[in-house]
């Protein structure tokens, strides 16, 4: 490994960052609250499980790491973020609304006829860089964007969020190969490693391990973190590998925060009933209190 994570366990830095981290933790809880409410108000159901596993990843990326301007979504030098696991769209829309790309009220049309606020990420929506839904597409698009940036000697970053089930698609491995071949150091991919695909565990569906080694052997700088730990996420986002793309394997819990769904396959797509939503919101309030 080229990069030495010298500040990885720097306690002083952690203290300095404490306020920053608490602010982000609160944001993540706010995100969770919105998501629970959306999953309750949309009787057809939403991709709640993945939305919840993405909470801290999206919050850290959108509220701290990425260089964005919601008032100027087409700003040329912004960082690009592609949600390749496009079914996490309910989470993406939530974070974009929180960032001010559009008011939450627009999401009332979610899944309705002629609305682009729908089950899968759609670039008709402000702030969405590329439409996604069919798995195994986003990383290739991200590779093309990063190559274009390199050609124009631009300094912006490309972030691509993948699902762990998603990387069963072979096209990802083509993209992984090419990103290291082209030395795309401005490309960071994040795998939301919640260990569950639609109808089973990734272990029983199609074994992915040893995932770190596999991706390292494809020429990437790889770090594995707790995907719900904002402090760990911040540090790994800060790491600057030399001449390599970076992969963050973020271990998460699908459905985290809704006890009846957490780490269960059935969390993939669900409507939350009154009771589920109430309990989850009460837990969030308790967590918020503990941060005061």
């Amino acid at each position: 490994m080229i990069w030495v994570p010298s500040h990885f366990i720097d306690k002083d830095l952690l203290m300095k960052n404490k306020n920053r981290i608490i602010r982000l933790q609160k944001k993540a809880l706010e995100y969770r609250k919105h998501l629970i409410q959306l999953a309750h108000s949309h009787s057809f159901g939403v991709h709640i499980g993945g939305g919840l596993s993405l909470a801290e990843i999206l919050t850290t990326l959108y509220f701290e790491v990425a260089n964005l301007d919601s008032g100027n979504p087409d700003w040329k030098d912004r960082d690009r973020i592609i949600l390749s696991k496009g079914h996490g769209n309910i989470g993406l829309l939530t974070i974009l609304a929180m960032k001010g790309y559009f008011p939450f009220s627009e999401m009332q049309s979610f899944n309705q006829l002629e609305s682009f606020y729908s089950m899968h990420a759609d670039a008709h929506i402000l702030g969405v860089e590329h439409s996604a839904g069919s798995l195994g597409h986003g990383l290739s698009v991200a590779v093309g964007m990063a190559l274009a940036a390199g050609l124009d000697q631009k300094d912006w970053n490309v972030y691509c969020i993948l699902g762990d089930g998603e990387i069963m698609e072979g096209s990802n491995w083509e993209a992984l190969m090419s990103a290291s071949h082209f030395k795309l150091k401005k490309l960071t991919a994040i795998i939301d490693r919640n260990h569950l695909s639609q109808e089973g565990t990734t272990t029983e569906t199609m074994g992915l391990e040893p995932l770190v080694k596999k991706i390292e052997n494809f020429g990437w700088f790889v770090e594995e973190v707790d995907g719900h730990n904002i402090s760990e996420l911040l540090q790994v986002f800060d790491a600057e590998p030399i001449g390599q793309p970076k992969m963050i394997i973020a271990n998460t819990i699908k459905g985290r925060g809704v006890e009846s769904l957490a780490n269960k396959t059935k969390s993939h797509f669900n409507h939350l009933d009154e009771n589920q939503a109430r309990l989850a919101l009460e837990d969030i309030e308790k967590e918020l209190m503990s941060l005061q």
């Binding site: 195994g136 698009v141 964007m145 190559l147 083509e174 190969m177």
Partner: peptide, 15 residues
């Protein structure tokens, strides 16, 4: 690896 090439073309065009 044509799938990756085609996806990357979209990325280039987006930029």
């Amino acid at each position: 690896a044509e799938q990756n090439m085609m996806g990357a073309a979209a990325g280039f065009a987006r930029e």
